Amino acid sequence: MQAFVKTLTGKTITLEVEPSDTIENVKAKIQDKEGIPPDQQRLIFAGKQLEDGRTLSDYNIQKESTLHLVLR
C-alpha cells in the first residue's frame, strides 16, 4: 500500500509499505529515499510519536495515510 510522509519543509515522500511493517522498517525506507539516518527520524501520526517496535497496523495506519517526519 502507499503511505505518505510529510517533512517539515513541506516535501511529501511516497512510500510503499505494508500494514505489518514496523516503524523501524518505515524509517529504513525513508533513509533509502532521503538519506536521513533512522536515529534522527521521529514519525508522528494522529499527534502520537510512533515507536520503532510497533507496526503500522498497531497504529491503525491505512493506505494513503500521511505520517509527519520530524528530525531530532
Rank of each mutant, 00 (worst) to 15 (best):
residue 5 V to H: 01
residue 59 Y to F: 04
residue 22 T to N: 04
residue 8 L to H: 15
residue 72 R to N: 13
residue 40 Q to W: 11
residue 4 F to D: 03
residue 5 V to I: 13
residue 46 A to R: 14
residue 32 D to W: 10
residue 12 T to R: 07
residue 56 L to V: 07
residue 26 V to D: 00
residue 49 Q to D: 14
residue 40 Q to C: 10
residue 33 K to F: 08
residue 40 Q to P: 02
residue 4 F to E: 04
residue 6 K to R: 11
residue 10 G to C: 05
residue 11 K to N: 08
residue 56 L to T: 02
residue 61 I to W: 06
residue 34 E to Y: 08
residue 8 L to E: 15
residue 5 V to G: 01
residue 37 P to V: 06
residue 47 G to A: 04
residue 9 T to S: 14
residue 23 I to P: 02
residue 37 P to D: 09
residue 22 T to I: 04
residue 7 T to A: 05
residue 59 Y to S: 02
residue 61 I to Q: 03
residue 12 T to W: 11
residue 67 L to M: 09
residue 56 L to F: 04
residue 45 F to D: 01
residue 58 D to W: 12
residue 17 V to E: 00
residue 58 D to V: 04
residue 14 T to D: 05
residue 15 L to T: 01
residue 43 L to E: 01
residue 8 L to N: 13
residue 38 P to A: 15
residue 64 E to D: 15
residue 21 D to P: 01
residue 67 L to A: 02
residue 29 K to T: 03
residue 33 K to I: 14
residue 51 E to L: 11
residue 62 Q to C: 07
residue 50 L to E: 01
residue 13 I to C: 02
residue 19 P to I: 08
residue 38 P to I: 15
residue 55 T to E: 03
residue 56 L to Q: 00
residue 24 E to S: 12
residue 65 S to R: 05
residue 8 L to F: 13
residue 30 I to N: 01
residue 1 M to P: 02
residue 12 T to K: 07
residue 54 R to K: 15
residue 7 T to P: 04
residue 71 L to I: 12
residue 72 R to G: 11
residue 53 G to Y: 10
residue 53 G to C: 06
residue 39 D to F: 10
residue 45 F to I: 04
residue 25 N to H: 11
residue 39 D to C: 10
residue 17 V to T: 03
residue 9 T to I: 07
residue 2 Q to Y: 13
residue 68 H to W: 14
residue 54 R to L: 12
residue 10 G to Y: 03
residue 39 D to P: 06
residue 13 I to W: 06
residue 57 S to W: 09
residue 70 V to W: 10
residue 10 G to I: 02
residue 38 P to L: 13
residue 35 G to K: 07
residue 14 T to K: 09
residue 40 Q to Y: 08
residue 26 V to I: 13
residue 58 D to L: 03
residue 1 M to S: 04
residue 9 T to F: 12
residue 57 S to I: 08
residue 33 K to W: 07
residue 41 Q to G: 03
residue 48 K to T: 13
residue 30 I to K: 00
residue 62 Q to P: 12
residue 24 E to Q: 12
residue 26 V to N: 00
residue 63 K to I: 07
residue 12 T to S: 06
residue 47 G to L: 04
residue 71 L to V: 11
residue 39 D to H: 13
residue 41 Q to K: 02
residue 20 S to K: 08
residue 46 A to C: 09
residue 13 I to D: 01
residue 40 Q to V: 11
residue 43 L to H: 00
residue 31 Q to R: 13
residue 40 Q to G: 06
residue 66 T to N: 05
residue 71 L to E: 08
residue 64 E to V: 06
residue 10 G to T: 03
residue 10 G to V: 02
residue 64 E to I: 06
residue 60 N to S: 08
residue 16 E to K: 09
residue 42 R to C: 13
residue 45 F to A: 03
residue 35 G to L: 05
residue 39 D to G: 10
residue 15 L to E: 00
residue 28 A to P: 00
residue 68 H to S: 07
residue 65 S to T: 11
residue 20 S to G: 12
residue 10 G to L: 04
residue 48 K to G: 06
residue 39 D to K: 10
residue 56 L to H: 00
residue 11 K to A: 09
residue 53 G to M: 09
residue 1 M to F: 15
residue 46 A to K: 14
residue 50 L to N: 01
residue 65 S to M: 11
residue 49 Q to C: 12
residue 20 S to L: 09
residue 66 T to P: 06
residue 28 A to M: 14
residue 69 L to D: 00
residue 54 R to I: 05
residue 50 L to M: 09
residue 47 G to K: 04
residue 8 L to R: 13
residue 18 E to V: 13
residue 32 D to V: 13
residue 59 Y to K: 00
residue 25 N to E: 12
residue 13 I to A: 01
residue 56 L to I: 09
residue 26 V to P: 00
residue 56 L to M: 05
residue 19 P to E: 08
residue 34 E to L: 15
residue 72 R to V: 15
residue 65 S to F: 14
residue 32 D to L: 13
residue 70 V to C: 08
residue 47 G to E: 05
residue 35 G to E: 04
residue 65 S to Y: 08
residue 2 Q to R: 14
